[in-house]
Amino acid sequence: MKYLDDTTKAMLKKVAFDEKQEHSASFLATDWDVLDTHSAEDGLEILPIGTALDKYEWLRELFFTLIEKDKDTYVKEVASSDVLLGYFIRIKAGVKISLPVYTCYMINSDKFTQCTHNIIIAEENSELHLISGCTANAHIVSGRHLGVTEYFIEEGATVTSTMIHSWGKEVEVYPRSAAHVGKNAKFISNYVAMGSVKKLQMDPLAVIEEGGLGEFYSVIYATENSQFDIGSTVILNGDGASSEIISRVVSNGGEVTTRGKIVGKHPNGRGAMACNGLLLSKKGYIHAIPELLGQDPRLELSHEASVGMISKDELAYLMASGIEEEKAKSLIIEGFLDLKIPSLPDYLQRQINAIVKETKDFETM
């Protein structure tokens, strides 16, 4: 790996990318430069996307098959970019990797627009854990990150994808992702954003085939002048397909719209949504938009949503125990954002919790 200064290393650690952390493979890019790509495991391949396209002619046929090139202006910009930046990850059939793959994109030049396109393939009965960090370096005032990611998860495979964002007050971010989840396969998607961003908008799509499972979890802490529009769309496309969409949102002056949509097309499908929001300031808002569409009478779909303030009873209890008010509020927020993810390995759950605790000095206005 190329030399990284201490400031850059500190910013990368905020999104869980640490060169000293034990891992099975890694990828790191700043602006257009790929600084590191390597795999330490047999059966697990990771390459810069340009190298992968030169190596595998068939890969070109997968490009923009789950996300159409003309989906929106941001995807069009990625598709027409003069520079091809991204990674290709493939885990071979039957291979199960316990250590995570770490990837990271960093904006390192002010007013830079970074366009990326990633392809992840999990072959039959394989297992992969991916941790993706995205950030802007400390000196960055403004910039844009546009990302396209396509997941191909074959029969019986499991992919856990954890995306951790830490941007900046004037950075705009438009990730676009889609997953095809094969028969009896699993896709667990976790999203964590704990800092300022000018605007972030995304709505990942998952198409779940027979007996497959798609789970989406998000944890958002939105500071003043931040704007988040996040969601997940799941299509239960096979008999017995199931999904869960859960989000925890704290707005401390930020504007947050959280969406969820589950479409059930076949019998025995199950889907549930839950969005819980904690509003700390009148300067921001939380807008929860759950949507269910059932197209078969033998489906089971449900949703719930809530937005409220810090519990006065909880606050009084902690203060009665001798904890100062601001510290008590901070502990309540930290506990609220401590989202337990049933399908996540313990070490990944601990890593997400650590990221949340890094922002433990929450201002409560």
Results as ranks from 00 to 15, higher is better:
Lys183Gly: 05
Lys183Asn: 10
Asn184Lys: 08
Lys186Glu: 13
Lys186Cys: 14
Ile188Ala: 02
Ser189Tyr: 15
Tyr191Trp: 12
Val192Gln: 00
Ala193Val: 12
Ala193Phe: 09
Met194Phe: 06
Gly195Tyr: 02
Gly195His: 04
Gly195Ile: 00
Lys198His: 12
Lys198Asn: 14
Lys199Met: 10
Gln201Asn: 02
Gln201Phe: 07
Gln201Glu: 11
Gln201Asp: 08
Asp203Ser: 10
Asp203Tyr: 14
Pro204Asp: 01
Pro204Leu: 00
Pro204Ile: 01
Val207Pro: 01
Ile208Lys: 04
Glu210Pro: 05
Gly212Pro: 01
Leu213Gly: 03
Gly214Asn: 04
Glu215His: 14
Phe216Gly: 05
Tyr217Val: 02
Ser218Ala: 10
Ser218Val: 05
Val219Ile: 15
Val219His: 10
Val219Lys: 10
Tyr221Ser: 11
Ala222Arg: 03
Thr223Asp: 13
Thr223Val: 13
Glu224Asp: 11
Gln227Trp: 10
Phe228Gln: 10
Asp229Thr: 11
Gly231Thr: 02
Ile235Glu: 07
Ile235Pro: 05
Leu236Met: 03
Asn237Tyr: 01
Asn237Asp: 08
Gly238Asp: 00
Gly238Ser: 05
Gly240Tyr: 01
Ala241Tyr: 00
Ala241Thr: 06
Ser242Met: 07
Ser243Ile: 03
Ile245Arg: 03
Ile246Lys: 06
Ser247Val: 09
Ser247Met: 08
Arg248Glu: 04
Arg248Leu: 12
Val249Asn: 13
Val250Arg: 13
Ser251Ile: 00
Gly253Glu: 04
Gly253Asp: 06
Val256Ala: 05
Arg259Asp: 09
Gly260Arg: 05
Ile262Ser: 03
Val263Trp: 00
Gly264Trp: 03
Gly264Gln: 04
Lys265Thr: 09
Lys265Glu: 14
Pro267Cys: 08
Pro267Ala: 14
Gly269Gln: 08
Arg270Asn: 11
Gly271Lys: 02
Ala272Gln: 07
Ala272Thr: 15
Ala274Ile: 09
Ala274Asp: 06
Cys275Gly: 11
Asn276Ile: 11
Asn276Val: 10
Asn276Asp: 09
Asn276Met: 14
Leu280Glu: 03
Gly284Glu: 01
Gly284Trp: 04
Tyr285Ala: 04
Tyr285Gln: 09
Ile286Leu: 14
Ile286Arg: 08
Ile286Val: 15
His287Arg: 06
Ile289Ala: 09
Ile289Pro: 00
Glu291Met: 12
Leu292Asn: 01
Leu292His: 06
Asp296Tyr: 09
Asp296Leu: 10
Asp296Cys: 13
Arg298Gly: 15
Leu299Trp: 02
Glu300His: 15
Glu300Thr: 11
Leu301Ala: 06
Ser302Tyr: 12
His303Val: 03
Glu304Asn: 06
Ser306Ala: 14
Ser306Phe: 15
Ser306Pro: 01
Val307Pro: 04
Gly308Glu: 08
Met309Ser: 08
Ile310Phe: 14
Ile310Pro: 01
Asp313Tyr: 15
Glu314Ser: 09
Leu315Asp: 08
Met319Gly: 07
Ser321Phe: 12
Ser321Asp: 07
